[in-house]
Each structure stands twice: as C-alpha cells, then as structure tokens.
C-alpha cells in the first residue's frame, strides 16, 4: 500500500517557486529520506505534506487522504517532529505527552498505556517527572519523538531530527527510531543533512535541489549511479602542467577533478588505479605527498547531484512571513 503519494506538487511564494513539481511515492512501512542542501525546498515540501502549507499546484495523498481537501484526516494519520525543538520547557516529560494525547483525542485508558510504552521506547521513563528545560538536547529530541507518536500515527515526519545533537546522541536517536519502527506499523519520512544517517536508516532516498527531484533510489543504487566505485584523493608536488591528463589515462579512471595540487579520481578499480598511479608518478619523478583511497559514499552522491557551489545567497522574506497578508 502507498502511504505517501506526491504528484507534481508545486509551492510558490509570490514570484519565487520553492518546490517545482515534485512527484514520488513512499510505500507503507518504508523509511524514506529526503536529502538536499539548505534552501533546496525540503522543509517547504514537508510542510505541505503535513498540512502546514497549502500546495499551489499538484496533490499529495497521505494514507489515502488529500492534504488540501482532507487536512483533518491527514492530521489524525500523521505524527510530526518539526525542525525546531518545540516541547514545552516548563512542562514535565510526561505532561508534554499527555497534553498532545489529549489534543489528538486519545481515550483516557489508552493514553496511560501509550505514554508508558513510549517513555520506555525512548528510554525516558526515569525522567518522566522532570521538566523538559532540565534535559539535554538529545533527551529533548527523544521527548519530541515520543510526543509525535502518542496518538499512534501511520506516517511519521521528521524534519532534521538530529541537527545540533552530538554524535553519541545522534546514534542513539537512529537506533531508537529503528527499534520503534520495527515494533509498529509505521512509515517514516525523514529529512537530514547527515549522509551517514540517511545511508544507515533509509530504505530509499530522494535528493532534492532547487525545488526539484534530482535522484531517487536506494542508497546502494544511488552510490552505484555516480562514476567510480572508489575515490582516490592524492596530492602531488613538482607535477607537470598536463598531470591531470596523465591521471585521466590511468586504468579504470572514470572522472578526475583537481584543485591546486590535490586531485580526486573516481575509479572502477581502486587498487589497480592506485598501483598504476604510483608507478607513473615514479617514472615521471612526481612525488606523492598524500594518498587516500575510499569507497563511494552518499556524500559523493550528494555532491554529484547538487554540485559543490556554496549556497550563500540572500533571500527575500517569504510571503508567509508577512503578518498582514490575508489568507483564507
């Protein structure tokens, strides 16, 4: 069964188009990753799918309900962890969950059982009476994950849930999400900047840039889709001017990029290319200062599809930030 069905969805803010006709489907029970650089349109897309923004064009069905026409049914079916930490700091861990269970209309008897189960799942049972303001960033995130699941949603949206957490807390959140997912009938859509996170967690990954879908597949297939199985990164001194051309002619080399004295070689056979490169360098009396060989990662996939250009641009405030704009 299809849990998320996005068809040619578009979002415009005045003259600016943040999402330009994206389509994809997420199967029930899948963990789906949405990757993209800052300003790529990920958060706008997730806000449309969670009914926080109305689409300008196209449709999106969540658990069979249209986000524009059946927003209330969608809201009942989804759990959402927004990018910002949104727990009530003055309330205790348990109270945060309790208030949201009431907002979702969870019956009293189920409420108690679910809160106890979720606190155990996120390993916060012993902190249940503590005010959230006294918890660390990682613990607050776990409170929010539990809060988002307190009404037993079918689809769970997480917008950069591990941003700002230390590596240990991040790993803890991943493991917890995988465990929760394995225990219930849940479809997960997650946005993240951490490629290793997406690689480990997600069944499939969509790469979004400039409001468009650049690639969509499993992490394995995405890695296979970019040139080379391995990447060699080497720096040289006293290299001749045409050194980059020499490197391109080495066996199994598919792509070479270079900057100053540092060169990256994408290759289908890492060991063979390494041996050939060292021999050629010795023959031409070029000294190798450093050499690293690694497998292709999602970082390489990400850079391949989105480019290396920095996105440091000013942007006009979105019309949604204008307090005096009347919207139905």
């Amino acid at each position: 069964m299809v849990a998320i069905d996005v068809r040619n969805i578009v979002k415009r803010f005045g003259d600016f188009t943040a999402v330009k006709g994206i389509s994809f489907q997420v199967a029930s029970g899948e963990i789906f990753g949405l990757l993209g650089p800052n300003g790529a349109g990920k958060s706008t897309l997730i806000r449309m799918l969670t009914t926080l923004l109305p689409p300008s064009e196209g449709t999106a069905l969540i658990n069979g309900f249209d986000v524009a026409r059946q927003a209330d049914d969608v809201r009942k079916a989804i759990g959402v962890i927004p990018q910002a930490m949104t727990s009530d700091l003055e309330l205790s861990v348990e109270e945060n969950l309790l208030i949201f269970a009431k907002l979702y209309g969870v019956p009293r008897d189920r409420r108690k059982r679910l809160i106890t189960e979720l606190l155990e799942a996120v390993e916060l049972t012993e902190w249940r009476d503590k005010q959230v303001r006294n918890l660390s960033g990682g613990m607050r995130r776990r409170v929010e994950i539990a809060r988002g699941l307190v009404h037993e949603p079918k689809v769970f949206f997480l917008d950069e849930p591990t941003t700002g957490l230390d590596p240990v807390s991040r790993v803890h959140v991943w493991e917890m999400l995988q465990r929760i997912k394995s225990e219930r009938d849940l479809t997960v859509l997650i946005t993240t900047h951490y490629m290793d996170e997406a690689d480990k967690l997600c069944d499939r990954i969509a790469i979004v840039d400039h409001g468009q879908l650049m690639a969509l597949d499993s992490p394995m297939k995405l890695k296979a889709s970019v040139p080379g199985k391995n990447v060699l990164e080497a720096s040289f001194s006293s290299a001749p001017a045409d050194w980059i051309e020499v490197l391109r002619r080495l066996p199994d080399v598919e792509e070479v990029t270079g900057h100053d004295h540092v060169f990256r070689l994408a290759t289908g056979n890492g060991p063979a290319t390494t041996m050939a490169m060292l021999q050629t360098a010795a023959q031409m009396q070029v000294s190798v200062d450093s050499l690293a060989v690694q497998s292709t990662t999602l970082d390489d996939v990400f850079v391949h599809y989105t480019g290396r250009a920095l996105r440091d641009t000013l942007q006009a405030p979105a019309p949604q930030d204008n307090p005096f704009m009347i919207r139905r």
């Binding site: 809201r75 930490m85 949104t86 949201f100």
Partner: peptide, 10 residues
C-alpha cells in the same frame, strides 16, 4: 515554533 506543534494536530 511551538505553534507548529499544535497546527499539525486536528
């Protein structure tokens, strides 16, 4: 962003 938490509820 606290209101976002409310707005995604029914």
């Amino acid at each position: 962003g606290l209101h976002e938490g409310y707005l995604v509820t029914p």
